[in-house]
């Protein structure tokens, strides 16, 4: 077992934890955090699996950078919608969710 798999497995674990958080929580901010944890998990898998003894693979690194930017943008967008929703309704969760 190579060290690389440790990273990938950590990524998998983060993804699983994030998924649980995403399901379990109702508070939208927490769900967003869970989403970001899942995202980190995927990025870790992406980078972790690329180390297979043939040197560093720059492609996953580039993909992860793109992925991070996309995640930042999505999170920002979600925060905007969330804040506006909170101000309109005073709720931190979605209706019909509880």
């Amino acid at each position: 077992m190579s060290g690389a798999l440790v990273f990938a497995w950590s990524g998998v674990l983060l993804f699983g934890l994030g998924l649980f958080g995403f399901i379990a929580h109702r508070h939208l901010l927490r769900r967003l955090l869970a989403f970001n944890i899942m995202g980190s998990g995927s990025f870790l898998v992406l980078v972790g699996l690329a180390q297979d003894g043939r040197g560093v693979d720059p492609v996953p690194h580039a993909m992860v950078i793109t992925g991070i930017v996309v995640a930042v943008a999505s999170t920002a967008l979600a925060l905007v919608v969330f804040r506006r929703w909170y101000r309109a309704s005073g709720r931190t969760d979605l209706p019909e969710d509880t």
Binding site: A8, W9, V12, G16, F20, I23, A24, V45
Partner: peptide, 16 residues
């Protein structure tokens, strides 16, 4: 939810 997430994690770990 916890059981399902464990199942998903196991499947992913297996895939890795």
């Amino acid at each position: 939810a916890a059981l399902l997430c464990v199942a998903v994690t196991v499947a992913l770990a297996w895939a890795v």
